[in-house]
Computed example of a mutant assay.
Amino acid sequence: MTAQTPGHTAAGTTTADPARAWQGDALDLDAYLARVGYDGDRGPTLDTLRALHRAHLAAFPFENLDIVLGRPIRLDIGHLVEKLVHGRRGGYCYEHNHLFAAVLERLGFTFTGVAARVQMGTDKLRPATHMALIVTIDGTDHLADVGFGDEGLLEPLPFADGSQARQSGATFRIERRGGEWVLRSLHTDGWFDIYRFTTAPQHTLDYEIYNHYLQTHERSPFMGRIIAQKTSPELRHSLIDTTLTTTRHGGTAHERLLDPEEVPPTLRTVFGIGLAPEESSTVTTRVRAFIAE
């Protein structure tokens, strides 16, 4: 599988430009690697992919604060580097996996983007609004996803029917169901469907459409609430409005209810998201409004 993104011709058709598909040539790679604390081998190997996957999750939070603050979410690599790397912020799936794709492209990995339907335990049909990557190394495919947030993979998972792995106390599995694939995690009461997807290649212009939907549509899960999540080797931290949950991978969860005024300092101390005073004030006001609805 190869990473390809169409470029527009004068006639309005598209033509593949693999060399610039994910803007890896425009990436400040050294700044990214310093941000995630990675100084290992840069060859396109499985060990490198695993190490970068875990390093990315540990360094960057998952969050939707730009939507809360009324700012557009952009997917060009310059903006992503400025926001996530230099601004020490986070983002949601398209931001994380676009940045990670640029890193992989720059390092010489072969991969493709896919679109997934987030299930989170339900069997309802949902739109394909999540982005993940399938990376091919030495002829073997691996599902990589640094942008799911809570319940997401901690490191790449071999992409094959029945593939299963335990990652820091959490157990993940991939299954094939007809023409789709399902990523699952093992809960105390059994297997839990996280998302399902096909291997149809998605391109950057496809994700631009999905990205617009998620930050503007009234049914988007990122509208009307604050979300922040952070993954460490032992724990997952999740903040939904004023509910802060800390969960051990594959284990117990502890929940605490915050006052609205506690949200900005919690974003800073738990999730590493520092806000300017006016941003903190806006977040506090919006949280009050969200919980009053």
Rank of each mutant, 00 (worst) to 15 (best):
T2G: 11
T5V: 12
G7M: 11
T14M: 07
R20W: 13
A21P: 03
W22P: 00
D28R: 00
A31K: 00
A31G: 07
L33C: 04
V36P: 02
G37E: 15
Y38D: 04
L46Y: 12
T48R: 03
L49R: 02
A51W: 05
L52I: 14
H53I: 09
L57V: 13
A59K: 00
E63K: 00
P72D: 13
I73Y: 09
R74V: 05
L75D: 11
D76G: 08
I77G: 00
L84C: 02
R88Y: 01
H98V: 07
L99D: 03
V103K: 00
L104H: 03
L107A: 08
A116L: 05
R126N: 14
P127I: 10
H130Y: 06
M131W: 06
V135G: 10
I137P: 02
H142S: 02
L143Q: 08
L143M: 07
V146L: 02
G147H: 00
F148K: 01
E151F: 13
P158T: 15
F159K: 01
D161N: 13
S163V: 13
Q164T: 15
S168M: 14
A170R: 01
A170S: 13
E175W: 10
L183S: 11
S185I: 10
L186N: 09
D189A: 10
D189Y: 04
W191F: 05
I194H: 05
T198D: 12
T204P: 04
T204R: 07
Y207V: 08
Y207N: 13
I209N: 12
L214P: 12
Q215K: 02
T216S: 10
H217V: 11
H217W: 09
E218S: 13
G224N: 08
I227C: 04
Q229S: 12
K230H: 15
K230G: 09
S232A: 10
R236F: 08
L239D: 08
I240V: 13
L244I: 08
T247V: 14
T252N: 10
H254K: 06
P265T: 07
L267C: 03
L267S: 01
V270F: 02
V270T: 15
F271A: 03
G272M: 02
I273T: 06
L275V: 13
T282F: 01
T285D: 15
R286A: 14
R286K: 11
V287P: 07
V287C: 07
R288K: 06
F290P: 04
A292E: 14
